[in-house]
Design a protein around this nucleic acid. Sequence first.
RNA 1: GCCCUCAUAGUUAAAUGGUAUAACAUGUCCAUGGUAAGGAUAAAUUUCAAGUUCGAUUCUUGAUGGGGGCACCA
Length: 638
Amino acid sequence: MPNIKLPDGNSLNFDKKVNGFQIAEKISKSLSKQALIISVDGNLKDLNYEIYHDCSVKIYTAKDKEGLETIRHDTAHVLAMAVQEIFPKTQVTIGPVIDNGFYYDFARKDPFTEEDLRKIEKKMMEIVDRDEPTHREVWKRDKAIEHFKKAGEIYKAEIIKAIPKEEEVSVYFHGKWHDLCRGPHLSSTGKIGKYFKLTKVSGAYWRGDSKNEMLQRIYGTSWPSQKELDNYLKMIEEAEKRDHRKLGKEMDLFHFREESPGSVFWHERGWNLFQKLIDYMRLRQKKAGYKEINTPEILDRGLWEKSGHWEKFGEHMYTSTTPDEKIFAIKPMNCPGCVQVFNQGLKSYRDLPLKMSEFGKVHRYEPSGALHGLMRVRAFTQDDAHIFCTEDQITQESLSVTNLILDIYKDLGFKNVILKYSDRPEVRVGDDKVWDKSEAALLEAVKESKLEYSINKGEGAFYGPKIEFVLRDAIGRDWQCGTLQVDLNLPERLGASYVDKDGSKKIPVMLHRALFGSLERFIGILIENYAGKFPFWISPLQVVVIPVSDDFDKYSKEVANKVNNSGINCQVDLKNHNLNYKIREHSLAKVPILLICGKKEVDSNSVTIRKLDSNDQEIMKLDKFLEKYTALNQAASN
RNA sequence: GCCCUCAUAGUUAAAUGGUAUAACAUGUCCAUGGUAAGGAUAAAUUUCAAGUUCGAUUCUUGAUGGGGGCACCA
């Protein structure tokens, strides 16, 4: 006589036993149609799971995260079925749900082609039409291993070996095809619907370890309705349109070339933007009490050995040998140089916290496969700073970094920021007591920030715990930019000290922090966030002056000069084209303000303003324009 | 670095075992224009190296670089 408690507080009574289908039917007809899986006392189960005892249940549909994930998980199974039907010798491995979809890793000699994907999709449709019923069996571990080994599924057998002893080994059947799986699953293959698509094939290491063999991964996406699938595909298209590599080319911001893979050739417009961000950051940091310094790009090998970089980071470092055979390294990080500035001259506890900022260009020899436009490069500029302080000051200083970063992100159009807190990794330096203290101090700052945060166990740097600042862009993608790291190691290694109140020498704590992170990456993110249509104050080229005909070239040049002299980036277009042509060209280049100059304007000493994406025309006295737009140009910097 | 894939004017594309086509961009000329492409005309290209071949941009191999992932990461 199980008594079934429902989420709304009501309960139902059944004779003997009951399953999810029967409960759903009893609640409502529409629910029974939409029901996908059920949770019994918080554990997700198949709908035909038999309940003999009192419990609370919740029935999930495609509207719930759990329901949607099950659809995707089932689609992954159907993918594996289809692959094995078409390519019988292929081994299956794992097929989890990911954001917006799923993947399945296969072991097979020949690579899957785009054509194969279409073939597999067709087969998947067939399997959906066949509506193969699902059923679940629990096997003995040894039997399961034996079975999969015999079937030539070596990877599956390995997975079973790795399942903890106390867990049961369950095998799901869809018709005859079966797979080792924890479940839960939908009641038949027809339930997943046909709103899926296989999106790409790629390589992936077995168990995510680059020492292991490479498998073939097929990615797919799956949704409860055609509309949601279409929306998702449209979002992908939108992301492609915003691709900063494409826009960077179109807007004449930068380019890459073979002679220096992963390093940016900045064009005038892109560099304008770059400088503007630095100007802005410089102002903000000055107000926040930072002192800007600059240190050498190339430093003797000995310093890097002392700092530990030579050993821990060596494979990412560029080195340079001088004609007299000395070895120098091109800095991959700014910290050792900064510590040396701290080390020059005796420091007192009264100097702390000492915040030193540096726009340092660093070089890292990144693996070739990691390079990606501006997002991942081999030479980049950090808006770096190092805060030397006492252990007691960690929380306060971390908090002020967090507040500064939030404010800055807001100015640049990002309102959603979350934190990722990472604590001690297995391989680390320093005493556990000091770790305890600094982790606690940093976590306190995280909590006090009142922001949403996640804890990444064991992902801290080898020298201390860290926070990463993740921002969400206009189309919902997350990017990691800023970072704050507590360093318990480097000051000591490089002999940094200050004189405390009692006259004794103490080692300071150092906080590393970067707000944009890498200027290059941040610009990439900005381009994609705004789809190239920047707010006026950071626009790569802010104003273009266009004469109505060449009779007005002289006046247009004068206007452009005045605009430039007021600190606004401006060009005049004197090319031999008509007005319409020029408006189109500069609009496509996403210049926010076009100033049209013809007879009217010359006579009244004014300009006609045409804003991007607007057909409105506004005529304004030149003086007034300068006044208004100079103020706008400063807007976010105050 | 690993798996897959691609490489043709400044850009985006097309074609071919017999040296390559177009659009846009660029230069010159005409048109002197009022809010998203006016007209004429010119110059310019097969990533690099080796091989097969009478002949390679096309086929083969290698290198380099790009793209999608994996691993690594700001």
